[in-house]
Amino acid sequence: MKHERNLKAAYSAEHALFLKKRRRRQTLIRLLRVGLLALLLAMWELVTALGWADSFLTSSPSRIIKTLLSLYRDGTLFYHIGVTLWETLAGFAIAVAAGCSIALLLWWSDTLQRVLEPYIVILNALPKIAMGPLIIIWFGTGSRAIVFMAVLVGIIIVIMHMLSAFLAADRNKVLLLRSMGAGKGQILIKLVLPSSLAAFISTLKIAVGMSWIGSIMGEYIVSKAGLGYLIVYGGQVFKIDLVMTATCILCVLAAGMYFLIVLLEKILVKNKED
């Protein structure tokens, strides 16, 4: 971007026009995105206010705000957010750390990789929710069970993605390093890890989504607190406002975590290219 601005004076009138059009289009797209959200919320509010839809069943933006305020006033809003956020982040961190380590081991030992391949394929295909009762029995009904569920949902995909990234390291570059006398450790550090950076970022993006699925699924099965708990509880006592409010908070949190990773990507990639 800085580069672009410095050179601006040298651009032809035609190119300046092109840039102007491009900027306009980007602004328009941003406005339309926000506008679409505003429109949907307004219609939702209007339809319930006019009585065309029963706000007891559909809730409404104003009722969501009221619910949010009352949760805030009785001090439970940040408690529930904190519980789910902690479970998700812990699940995410463990799934990524353990998944990458296991992928590394499998890359290191071809034999181990061949031996464990069918197990990984089956674990990947297994619906993790089937493990629900076992998790309750093994880990109890606290946060530990939910973190375990989040790890379970995320880890296999991390292993598979990172292993294929490690194995995709350029054969000719491996040959080159070997001709210089490099051992496996040096090949790992000089070539395999740096060339897997892009795959690592995309794995993080997937793992974030997976750990949210895992933590909410965990809270559905067994929980005393958290956003998933609010949704289940709201459903059971027919408080749709609570269900909708918790869902909206989830949207905001999940999007926030995703954008943090996009930010991380920008920092890392920028360091590499400039």
Partner: peptide
């Protein structure tokens, strides 16, 4: 000692 040079430059882009 040997030095190997391949068909493509195989420079590391990072």
């Amino acid at each position: 000692t040997v030095g190997y040079m391949l068909q493509r430059d195989e420079l590391f882009p990072w």
